[in-house]
Structure formats: C-alpha cells, structure tokens
Design a protein around this nucleic acid. Structure first.
Lengths: 363, 363
DNA sequence: TTGAAAGCGTTACCAG
DNA sequence: CTGGTAACGCTTTCAA
C-alpha cells in the first residue's frame, strides 16, 4: 500500500523505470528511443509516449561511461575585450549545438589557467578542445597531446604543428594595401596589435610587404596593443599631425582598434573616408564595425566557415585520432564601407556609387 | 609475454589500473587519493606517486553516476554586443573555477534555444543553471522548475518568483540624478535601453523619479536599444540641437550606450564633461568605460560580488533544493570620471581636483 | 587499515 | 522482434 519512500524529489525517469512502466525490458526501451529498426511500431509508440510523458532524458554520463563520446568540447577563449571574440563565441555556440555538441568553458581572458581547470579536460571526458586564444596555454596543449585529445586552434596560426583554421591574414593585409594604393592613397600608417599574436603580425606583414612591392613605404607605425583604446591613441596622434605630413590611410589590424581610430579622428574633426580626410581600414568584419556609424572597409572573416571548419576538423579527429595535423586557411572578403574613400570621388567608394578605379591587384 | 593488445591508444589510467600497479584494491586507491584518514601514510605516498606518474584523472562521469553532483553548471548568456556580458563572462568563469565548477554554455545571444539544447541540461546532470540573459528563455525555466534544478538569475530582476542577484538599478539611477542635479545640471536626457529588459527600465525609472522629486523634469528621452549604435544616434541628435535647448546632462542606462553617446558628441565637437558642454553618465562600470578615452562617471556594479553571490546562491540550492527563493540586491558605487563635470569647476569633478559641491542626496 | 561486492544508467552482445 | 547479462569507473557499505 505504501508508496516508495523516495518521493520527495520525484526521482528522474530512467530506462529501467520506463521499462517497468511499459512492461518491457530496458534494452527494448533503449532501442525504441534511439530508433533501432527492429522494434515493433506498437511498442515503440507506447514507449515514446511514456518517455514524453515522464520527461525522460537519457543520462549522458552513463552513456559516456560505456566508452562512447561525451559530446562535450572544451573551449579556451581569448581576451573578450576584442569584439571579435564575442562574435566568435555566439557562432561557436550555435554551430556546436547544431552538431549536438556542448561547450565547456575551460578559460576566458588573459590570466593563466588553474591546474584543476586543465584537469577538467580529462575528468569530464571532453571529446576535444577548441582554442581561440591568441596565446596557446601550454598546459592545455600538453594535456591534449599526452592524452590523445584532439585540439583545434581557431583564428590562430599553427606555426610548428597542430590542427588549425584561420583566415589568410597576410593576403588580407595585402589586399587592403592594394585597394588603398589603387584608390590613390600616398601616406600609409599601420596600427599594430598585441606583439605576440601571430594574426596581428601577419596582417601587418602582408600589408607592409605589398606596399613595398608597389613602391610605397610605410609612413608611420603605431602600437595599438589590440585594444580599442590603443586605436584611439593612434588616431589622436594622427589628428595632431600637420595635414601635410598626416597619413591619408590607416590600417588598423583589427576592427576594434579601427573603431577606436575613427572615434579619435572624428573627435578631432578629421574627416574619415572623405576627400581631404583619412581613410581607415580594419580587419575581422565584426558586426558592430560593419554598421553605422563606422561602416568600416575591412577584410571580413568568413566567421561561419571558420567556425564550421573548426568544428568539423575537431570532430573528424574525435572519430579518427590518427588523422594527421591539418591547417585550413580561408580567405576573407574585402568589404567596402564608407570608412575609406577613393581619390577622385566626392565621398565613399564603388559600393556607394563611385565607379572610378579598380580594386584588382596591381600587376 | 605478449602485452595486452589495446596499447595503440594508451588507455587512460583508472582506479583499477592503479590498484593493480600498486598491489592494492580499488577502494584503497579511491580512499588514498581523496585523503581519507584511515590509509597508512606509506601506501598513500605510493599511490599518490603512481597517480602522478600515470597522469591519473578521476572520471567525473562515473562519480556523477554514483549519485553525486556533476560539478557542471549550465550558462545562458545574454547578447554579447553589450560589453557588460564579456566582462561578466570572464568573472564567472574564473569564480566558477575557484569553486571547482565548470560552465556548460547552453546559449549565447538573442536567438531562441533549440530543444535538444534545453535537454542537455538534464542529460548532463547539470547541478544548476545561471541565466544572465535579459529575457529568461521560458523553456529553460520550465525544465529547471519541473526537474528541481536550481536556477539563479544574474543581473536580472526576478519580479514574480525565482532566485536572483542584481544591482540596485533604481537606486543607481536615482544616485546619478542626485549627482547631476547637485552638480548644477538643468536639462536632463535619458537614453533608454531595450524595452523588455527590466534592468534598463528600472534604471530609467529611478533616474526620472528622483528628478521629479527634486523638481526637475526630463527634458528629452531617446531610445538607445541597448546598443552602442543606439547611443551614437542619441548623441548625434543631441549635438544637432541648438546649444540653448540642448540637454546639459545625459544618462545612458548602460555603459555601452554611454560610450556611443560620447563618441557622437565628440565627433560633432560638443565638449564632454567640460564647462559649456554636456555631461554623460552611464551604468555598469564595464572595464572599457572606466579607462580613457571615456573615463565615464557611472554606477559600477560590484561584479565580483554579483558573480560570487550568484554562484553561492546556486550552490546552496544544489546542496539544499528546498531552500526558498532568495533575491539579493547589491548596491553599485558611484564612480566619478571625467565624462561629467560640476558647474563652477573649470573641468571635471572632485575626483579630478574640484572640491565644490556635494554628492549626498538632497533632503 | 584494507578488501569485496553492490550499484549508479546506459549500451552491446548473445540468446531466444 | 525482444530479453538477459556484462561492462564502463567510481564510491560506499559491510566484513575482515
């Protein structure tokens, strides 16, 4: 007559409890719920109904224990003040969900990682690890290597070894140089990023090299430290230069800095993207930079593809740990906004009605 | 003579493998590794050495299966373009790690949540859930309630029921009104946030109510939509008003918008935080807003405490699911930066050398 | 101080 | 088509 004592917290439904209620074995329930072909439609319907009714959710812990995959991916995030990372995070979360995977945050920001955080990678049987941080935390790298846990770097160049997806930073920088030269700019400036991020260095290198190839020299270089504030500082300096000596084109190697540059120029009444003013170009294509009031001319990273390929590479290595290191480079697209102008146009560029010039690479 | 066949992927060490190597039982290893008192120091040392050597990491899945806690917390993140959320995320990750917990991202951004994402909450035996999103996804709320999974809202007011931590938005708004009035401002503007975020509404309400109490009316209101771009638009409008009619104080209900306002004012040569210009104040105290070139006067949310109390409340409810709903309100601190000035001072305020006036509440 | 055994929820294998 | 059984790695009685 008495009900079981443990009814205070309505114990979550399990395979066994469902089996009892349906009058079948646990194996049958398991098969029915996962769409195994050899189950009579009748019992399947009954079991499915029962599962829905009780709000049954399979226990991923038990499944993982059997030796399967956990469906969990570790995530190491870069400094969140760079607007690219919030954008990246949203895309990553969405696409991981599409693939039935969840992200476990192992780290965010610039500090170093606790020991037990790194251990979590193993404790929770994470299937793999995605690192978006510019600086690859050595502990994670070591743990992944020693335990054959696949690791994929996203937006980070794998110089020596490892699997990675990144945007062609060198080519992007070069493409911007081409466009600026083609559009008639003469005095070029660069706002560099954090010194030990390979992406920043490559973008700058590509830009400067192409300038040189085409007979232009870099007029001035600022250190922007990969922060918007650093961009502002650079923009302020430019604004204080005499209009004759002032650069007429500024390449900030990330959109965050580029927005800072623009803010500073405008605050000092230096026109941006207009005749007689300064053209500003960036890199990344973050959402905020493409919209007013910036409408940046920039290299847009194919974020969907970057994230998609990153996850695909990772999951492929989860399937086959013996897969060789693979590095995927994707090309960004040059987006023409209003932040850069073309000499000879009253304002703006082709995208806004100016047909002059061409943006193909100079021979 | 032959080694076991499965040596291709060096099978991860387990309790049993350690037991075999140490010549003791699994129970002993388990006890030794978790500091159970009744293990001889000798065997303990031996086992610990062995564990370190093999890089043993306990299997959290197995432990959880035994009925313990998973150590996993679900996280629902708000729109990442609001700079408060990146800041919040970093703090949350750090403090969760300190407490030995990991965060599983269930959602980020504004879209709606997939069904199976919500199911993950149950599948992975998440101990609880933290929601920082302004809009509480109903599915998560329902699942948590039905399954007795504790849920804590952070930076979100729990009007009807639920456990939450938030900053006193009404009082913060009022405090800013007080300061602006005390500093001699006459024409007050508000830049409001997203319409259905309780935090934005409360901040605005507190501000406007205090203005009224002290005989001031709101001169003009803008809709900033909680985006920096919205702040820019508002700032632009202000700049186009004739100096006689222009507000001399603007309260943007979040720092992101406030920075946008400042950018727009500066771009239009309207001085910010100086005699003859406009004072701009914000709310949140995000890192970027406190530094140059903004140095915002703002209500700084006690981020460490907000996050710390949030986690504490959650973990307390994991221990004791019967704990009653609890709402913790923390007061922010008024931070005086250079973005607002005091009439009678050449520039800036007390924090920058002006001793005039007082910031206490008017009687 | 240590060991043996049971059991958590699931899946896979082998029978029927 | 369905059921029984073993096993995954760990903790927790209960015995020794």
């Amino acid at each position: 007559m008495d009900l079981p004592a443990s009814r205070l917290r309505p114990a979550r439904a399990t395979l066994l409890s469902l089996a009892g209620a349906a009058g079948v074995s646990a194996s049958t329930v398991s098969r029915a719920l996962r769409g195994d072909g050899r189950i009579s439609p009748t019992t399947r319907k009954r079991i499915e109904a029962l599962a829905a009714e009780t709000g049954y959710a399979p226990n991923a812990m038990a499944r993982t224990l059997l030796g399967g995959r956990s469906g969990l991916i570790g995530l190491v995030l870069g400094p969140m003040h760079n607007p690219f990372y919030p954008d990246l995070l949203e895309e990553l979360v969405a696409q991981a969900a599409e693939r039935g995977q969840r992200l476990v945050i192992l780290h965010a920001g610039e500090g170093s990682m606790e020991d037990r955080t790194a251990q979590a990678l193993l404790q929770y049987q994470l299937d793999g690890c995605i690192v978006t941080s510019a600086v690859l935390p050595s502990r994670i790298a070591a743990i992944c290597r020693e335990n054959a846990v696949p690791l994929v770097m996203v937006n980070r160049v794998a110089r020596e070894h490892g699997t990675a997806v990144y945007c062609d930073n060198v080519e992007g920088g070069a493409r911007l140089a081409d466009w600026l030269i083609d559009a008639g700019h003469q005095r070029h400036a660069v706002v560099g990023g954090h010194v030990d991020t390979s992406t920043s260095l490559d973008r700058e290198r590509g830009f400067v090299a192409r300038l040189a190839e085409r007979g232009h020299a870099l007029a001035v270089r600022f250190d922007g430290g990969s922060t918007r504030q650093g961009g502002w500082a650079a923009g302020t300096q430019v604004a204080t230069m005499s209009p004759g000596k002032r650069p007429d084109a500024i390449f900030a190697v990330s959109d965050g800095m580029a927005m800072g540059v623009i803010d500073a120029l405008r605050a000092n009444s230096v026109p941006v993207g207009e005749a007689g003013g300064v053209s500003v170009v960036g890199f990344d294509g973050v959402a905020a930079a493409l919209k007013p009031p910036y409408e940046l001319t920039t290299i847009v990273q194919p974020l969907q593809s970057v994230v998609g390929r990153g996850l695909d590479l990772l999951l492929a290595r989860v399937e086959d740990p013996a897969a060789p290191d693979e590095v995927v480079m994707l090309r960004g697209t040059l987006h023409l906004g209003r932040s850069a102008w073309r000499y000879g146009c009253a304002r703006g560029n082709r995208a806004y009605g100016c047909a002059a010039g061409r943006s193909a690479r100079h021979p």
